[in-house]
């Protein structure tokens, strides 16, 4: 990880020195991860691509404000998280409506005669919805830890919180998700349903 940070730092220095191709190398390294991160928020490839693009545009414009070039990754995740939150605020009302409409869906979906693929895909949608139900500060920790594999220390750096706070948010986030999954009858068997 330290080597990766050093590589990022070198590329950042090269970019600030005038080599624009260095930034494209940074994009090549981080695009997939930021895209996956945004995808967890919106479960939509187009939305994730848009957030990713905006994130890198913002990073390109503001890279000269980065104090520690070795923490480029943390800084990039912070930008991506803010972009996701801004987008959620913008489309939040629509998502809330669709969430309300889906609250009755689990009962209907599981009661109907099952097409395994349909159930699985609906379960995935419900997964996203369950995540969206979490408070923002819990959701971001769950996504970063469960899907991005970021260490607690790095998450703490990204969100500018203590490690204990991060662990606490993860704990309460997982507990809240468990409660939601139980109420919607979502479990791992649903995904292996045939």
């Amino acid at each position: 990880m330290q080597n990766k940070n050093m590589e990022d730092a070198q590329l950042v220095q090269e970019f600030l020195g005038g080599n624009h191709q260095a930034f494209n190398k940074l994009i090549g390294k981080w695009q997939d991860r930021i895209h996956h991160f945004a995808y967890r928020y919106f479960a939509n490839n187009d939305d994730a691509a848009e957030i990713t693009q905006k994130t890198f545009i913002k990073a390109y414009q503001k890279l000269n404000t980065l104090d520690d070039a070795g923490k480029f990754g943390s800084w990039l995740y912070r930008i991506a998280n803010n972009m996701c939150l801004d987008e959620l605020k913008r489309v939040g009302r629509k998502r809330a409506v669709s969430l309300e409409a889906l609250k009755s869906a689990p009962q209907t979906a599981t009661e109907r005669a099952a097409d395994s693929e349909l159930i699985r895909s609906e379960a995935v949608v419900l997964l996203h919805k369950a995540l969206l139900q979490l408070p923002n500060e819990q959701r971001i920790v769950v996504i970063m830890k469960e899907y991005e594999g970021i260490t607690f220390r790095e998450i703490a750096e990204i969100l500018d919180e203590s490690e204990n706070t991060i662990k606490s948010r993860l704990y309460y986030g997982l507990r809240a998700l468990k409660k939601t999954f139980d109420s919607w009858n979502i479990n791992k068997e649903v995904f292996s349903y045939d």
Binding site: Q31, H35, A48, A49, Q53, I57, V142, E146, Y147, K188
Partner: peptide, 21 residues
């Protein structure tokens, strides 16, 4: 632990295009 296992069922898609500045 089961919640974690359920969360891991969420698929992810890769970006379709490479961003270039």
């Amino acid at each position: 632990l089961e919640t974690r296992q359920v969360l891991q069922q969420m698929p992810v898609e890769n970006p379709k295009e490479q961003i270039v500045i």
